[in-house]
């Protein structure tokens, strides 16, 4: 960060961070997408970056939040909110008060509803434009940011957006740097008490750990019982691989081509 090299005020950036959850063990950690958002903020030269979290500070969340500090930050602002609270008003008010130019958020939280709505609701409430699925910020100049948006299969799209704006990042953004223990331990978590609003809807819904979704079978709409039987039998014997020995390269390639076609990976 070299603020002196910019004669105008440094770009004010706020990164919204949440407490993640490891998919296998359920332990608290840096949320992957949020950490990528923090990493993205590191790529903005001359930006004044602030980390903002709304939630509780307890044993489970502190290690995770300090994980963000370990990416090279001295402090993190925490808006104190009880579990199951709707953090939208608290965050919106904090952002209105601090007035950053750019807000970076992960696409979805790893805990709770995880609907990915929060950035959209914030954008709606603040009246700011929102760009989702960012891969990189290429340039910020005169109140306009040039962004690279990630599309499926590694494709990219270049966009320009007028600031202030909210951007969200997903797994296509640069991988987060390692969180170092020393800065994480030293960093300051600045807890601010703010009024909380209950999320009444969420409390009414039943949550259970995700069931494995049934794999869709290829349904054969066959006229005769024989065709249906054949289809079912073909599925059952599909376990072993097919080995083509002593074929010409052309025949082999033909078989592979057919499989690639069937899987739809050839464009």
């Amino acid at each position: 960060m070299r603020p002196e090299s910019h004669h105008d005020a440094p770009l004010a950036v706020t990164v919204l961070v949440s407490v993640g959850r490891h998919p296998l063990t359920g332990r608290g950690r840096r949320a992957d997408q949020d950490a990528r958002g923090v990493e993205l903020s590191h790529t903005l030269t001359g930006a004044a970056v602030e980390l903002l979290h709304a939630g509780r500070l307890d044993e489970g969340s502190e290690a995770a939040l300090r994980g963000y500090l370990g990416m090279g930050f001295e402090s993190l602002s925490l808006l104190e909110q009880p579990a199951g609270a709707d953090v939208l008003p608290a965050l919106a008010e904090a952002l209105e008060a601090s007035g950053p130019q750019l807000v970076i958020a992960g696409e979805r939280a790893e805990q709770g509803e995880g609907s990915g709505l929060l950035p959209y609701l914030l954008a709606e409430r603040l009246g700011w434009p929102l760009v989702s699925g960012l891969a990189a910020v290429e340039e910020v100049k005169e109140g306009v940011a040039t962004l690279l948006q990630a599309l499926p299969r590694g494709q990219r799209r270049r966009l320009q957006v007028r600031l202030p704006a909210i951007v969200t990042v997903d797994a296509a953004a640069p991988a987060p740097r390692q969180s170092a223990f020393g800065p994480a331990r030293r960093g300051d978590v600045d807890v601010q008490a703010v009024p909380a609003r209950d999320d009444a809807d969420l409390a009414q819904w039943q949550a259970q750990s995700a069931r494995k979704r049934p794999k869709r079978l290829k349904i054969v709409k066959a006229a005769s019982a024989r065709d249906r039987f054949k289809a079912a039998a073909a599925k059952a014997q599909g376990g072993g691989g097919q080995v083509l020995t002593e074929v010409t390269p052309e025949e082999g390639a033909e078989a592979i081509f057919k499989l690639l076609k069937e899987e739809g990976v050839l464009r």
């Binding site: 950690r29 090279g72 740097r177 170092a180 800065p183």
Partner: peptide
Amino acid sequence: LTLEHGNTPNKGPEVLDNLIATD
């Protein structure tokens, strides 16, 4: 380098994160 810089090279950070999260 690891505790202060957070600069373990290559797969180092991933392995350490795994150790923290999954033992």
